[in-house]
Design a protein around this nucleic acid. Structure first.
Length: 429
RNA sequence: GGGGGAAUACCAAAGCGGCCAACUGGGACGGACUGUAAAUCCGUUGACUUAUGUCUUCACAGGUUCGAAUCCUGUUUCCCCCA
């Protein structure tokens, strides 16, 4: 059994833990749980720190439990959120839970014969039948309001004066009861969570102690930050999701590849399972030749394969070369149609019939046929003269020459406006 | 209430009767360089079928003049000074 705590320590994944946790774990196989809020049908990379913690936990020979907050998701956690949450209905929740479960299976082994196989639990299962009377007697009785009010998360909401409903105020009791329930029925003695969860987790250990004199532990992971102070996990397009439908594997790969040098060392420890020696070697390599960005590449590779697949990774690399490298028409032609469309997923596609394509007398005509690429010929001409327009990776030299390049897959033209804006013209036959 | 000044393109700011679609700086967008970074350098930046072309612009409405962003009158808004 590997040393779980030591592993997390060198990876910089521990924010805080309760006293005695290390000794407790060393005694033998333990079980720990981490909760996920089913607010969407996919996890995003903000959840990944927690997921990785569970993964390390299982790899160290312990049993990870992933708790999906079917019940708590209906309530809303007030922790460090400024406004009251909208409640989700049961149908949406069920759908979200299914999506999240599928993603967790990539990280955790739910099928193992071993005693430490991962287990997915849903607190809706034990909360839904809980009557209010039972709840206030069996749970509420043990925790004082004074104690609950003292929590940072609650205090802050009260100070802001935005109002805190009784429902959200109760949240910590529900989460506390979850911990108690898992402790009692699943032998789960540890709760993992983000640093914002500390207060809620401790309410659980408190409940276990008061109700049964039991011992339970907490471990929180740090909030992931970025060196430039902007929010981690967001791009211009919003959150970075694990679901390939929401964030394509290519975009996902790009997100990690674009991480800054300062952040890369930190992230590679947290988000990959690469061992210490490998990472330190990569860092050395990166220091000697920073422009090669060995760290970012390793980080992006490892995590893309983990979350998506080896093949998705290869396509992402290929796509990156085409979009940013010095690729040529030949490289483009080697892509099959499916891959081509995947690489340019999200790019505007302009459809035109074959006759219009043949009749376009010049590059100018072709690019302004539809107003999407350029609004006017004047605009198009200016940018072509500035050297900013390519078709199928070939720069257009003269705006009034006819476009002579061959169609990709007999139907596509890849138009590049500036360095980063792409359009696909699909010629219908 | 009286006196003075100002309103210009995305922003700032020149222009003060023809050479003005309007200097310059910032921003934005393109290009080169680079690490898909930063810095730097170069180009574009009212619209249009690129034309030593046409059209629409310098708060708004009128006027003077062959000709106005520039002069005059009125209107609106803003700033300053005196009450």
């Amino acid at each position: 059994m590997n040393d779980f705590i030591a592993e997390l320590k060198w990876r910089g994944m521990i924010q805080d833990m309760t006293a005695g946790l290390e000794e407790h774990i060393q005694k033998g196989q333990a079980a720990a749980y981490l909760g996920f809020d089913p607010t969407a049908d996919s996890l995003h990379i903000g959840h990944l720190v927690g997921v990785m913690t569970l993964l390390h936990f299982q790899r160290s020979g312990h049993q990870p439990l992933a708790l999906i907050g079917g019940a708590t998701g209906m309530i809303g956690d007030p922790s460090f959120k400024s406004a009251e949450r909208n409640l989700l209905d049961k149908a949406t929740l069920d759908q979200n839970i299914a999506g999240i479960r599928k993603q967790l299976e990539k990280f955790l082994d739910f099928d193992a014969e071993a005693s430490n196989k991962a287990v997915l639990v849903n607190n809706y299962d034990w909360m839904s039948e809980f009557s209010f009377l039972e709840f206030i007697r069996d749970v509420g009785k043990y925790i004082t309001v004074n104690y609950m009010m003292a929590k940072d998360s609650v205090k802050r909401r009260l100070e802001e004066g935005n109002g805190l409903s009784f429902t959200e105020f109760t949240y910590q009791l529900i989460q506390g009861y979850d911990f108690y329930y898992l402790w009692k029925n699943k032998g789960c003695s540890i709760q993992l969570g983000g640093s914002d969860q500390w207060g809620n987790i401790v309410t659980g250990t408190e409940l276990i102690r008061k109700k049964e004199g039991g011992e339970a532990f907490a471990l929180t992971v740090p909030l992931i930050t970025k060196a430039d102070g902007t929010k981690f996990g967001k791009t211009e397009g919003g959150s970075v999701w694990l679901d390939p439908e929401k964030t394509s594997p290519y975009a996902f790969y790009q997100f990690w590849l674009n991480v800054s040098d300062e952040d890369a060392s930190k992230y590679i420890r947290i988000f990959t399972t690469l061992d210490r020696e490998t990472i330190e070697n990569l860092e050395k390599e990166h220091l000697e030749a920073p422009h090669l960005r060995a760290l970012q590449k390793a980080l992006a590779k490892d995590i893309t394969i983990l979350v998506h697949s080896e093949m998705d990774y290869e396509i992402a690399v290929k796509a990156s070369n085409i979009l940013f490298g010095k690729s040529s028409l030949e490289d483009l032609s080697t892509l099959d149609e499916r891959t081509f469309l995947q690489v340019f997923d999200g790019v505007d596609v302009i459809e035109m019939d074959h006759a219009s394509f043949d009749n376009a007398e010049s590059a100018l005509d072709l690019l302004t046929l539809d107003q999407t690429i350029f609004k006017s010929k004047g605009e198009a001409r200016k940018m072509i003269q500035g050297g900013g327009v390519s078709i199928n990776k070939q720069k257009i030299e003269n705006p009034s020459n006819k476009v002579e390049t061959s169609l990709l897959q007999d139907q596509y033209l890849l138009v590049q406006k500036g360095k980063k804006k792409y359009f696909i013209i699909k010629v219908l036959s």
